[in-house]
């Protein structure tokens, strides 16, 4: 989890009118925001859209933040919610859309990961992750990539620890089965 020291002062300064404090908060957490969105959506452009939405919400709502949780938990909660909402909206759009596959290809070709080997591994994983339900994906990402405990995940998502463990288990099971299918 991110080091919470200094968050309180940054928020206080921002509320006091110091815009550079907001910039510092963004610099501190931007990678976490981006990568969670990226792993949830599977491509850079969608992740970028979510990041901008999250920053907009942060900017507007930070003055109301009362430190009932850590700043990191609060930011992560916003990111997780926006990601799930984005996926829902996208599913609906795709259902009614007549867009062809070309636009999807263009979307997946725009990327900030330049190393080919890393990109290949990432693409493979993202394809598998997109095959599992969003809620299971979310828990898997928080546990496997961000190494959050179930208690921390529970604070972010508001779900019970038992439910989260079940989600993680089902996610892993499906991922391993899909990986198995791809190998054979």
């Amino acid at each position: 989890m991110a080091d919470p020291s200094g968050d309180f002062d940054l928020v206080k300064n921002f509320i006091g009118g110091d815009e550079s404090a907001f910039n510092k908060i963004v610099l501190k957490y931007q990678q976490k925001i981006y990568w969670h969105a990226r792993r949830m959506t599977g491509n850079h452009l969608d992740a970028d859209e979510i990041v901008q939405e999250v920053l907009m919400v942060l900017y507007e709502k930070l003055k109301d933040f009362q430190f009932k949780s850590s700043l990191y938990t609060w930011i992560y909660r916003i990111t997780a919610t926006r990601s799930i909402n984005f996926l829902r909206k996208n599913n609906l759009k795709n259902f009614f859309s007549f867009e062809d596959k070309e636009s999807e290809v263009v979307r997946s070709n725009v990327d900030i990961v330049k190393n080919i080997e890393t990109k290949e591994k990432l693409d493979k994983l993202e394809k598998v992750l997109l095959k599992i339900p969003a809620k299971q994906r979310e828990v898997f990402i928080m546990r496997s990539f961000d190494e959050l405990s179930y208690e921390e995940i529970s604070k972010i998502t508001g779900k019970s620890i038992g439910g989260l463990k079940a989600n993680y288990f089902h996610a892993m099971k499906k991922i391993m089965e899909h990986m198995n299918e791809n190998e054979h």
């Binding site: 981006y34 900030i112 990432l122 994983l125």
Partner: peptide, 26 residues
């Protein structure tokens, strides 16, 4: 092995451009 593969993808190095431009874009 799968978990090891996931660990390798935890901290991916990317060019600074994107993250440097994030605030001005916002």
């Amino acid at each position: 092995n799968f978990n090891t593969g996931v660990s390798e993808l935890k901290n991916i190095t990317v060019g600074d451009d994107y993250f440097v431009q994030m605030i001005p874009k916002f």
